[in-house]
Amino acid sequence: MPTHKLDPTKWVDKYSDYLFNYAIVRVNDREVANDLISETFLAGLNSKDNFEGRATERTWLISILKRKIIDHYRKINSQKGQAEVRINYSDSENNGDWLEEQVADTFDRTAEDEMENTELGLAILECLEQINEKHAAIFKMKTIDGADTEAVCKEFNISPSNLWVIIHRARTALAACLEKNWY
């Protein structure tokens, strides 16, 4: 079994987008997500010696982030006090209606769709990890951030024709990877 090694100096470049997309959908607040990622990196550094190399760096960081998200919700809930359940049906006619309200609405797939979209996003980022680092950064800037061709060329000091060759290779690799891992 291959053993994985940690390289904290590359964590931000390699995994910050992945961790961010994982966190943002779970906490729904950019600032909180940022804090949680920052805490994850620091906790990772502090427990570096416990890393056995059986999981990948990303999986290991995600497991730390998961704990941080759980801690975040625990903290919020302890500040709020205990949850209360109130049933406001005083007349006998409406008695029992609250039970119906507890049943999941099968037509409301919003949350499920959101989750599926996030998983798709993470699958895309996982596939991008497999291509050249610079090509992935160029692809992200052009496709996800929607930057102008001129801006991307200037940032990475490449010609427009070079950019389109890189985009073409990245898209071909990404489509093949998603066909294998997603469809």
Partner: peptide, 28 residues
């Protein structure tokens, strides 16, 4: 290629800003 574009849009992927990345790097 068109299917890929549709999937990328559907995923609503976000990236971190350069400032955010710089702050994390400095802290590390």
């Amino acid at each position: 290629n068109t299917k890929l574009t549709r999937l990328i849009k559907k995923s609503k992927l976000k990236t971190c800003s350069e400032e955010e990345k710089k702050a994390w790097k400095n802290r590390i």
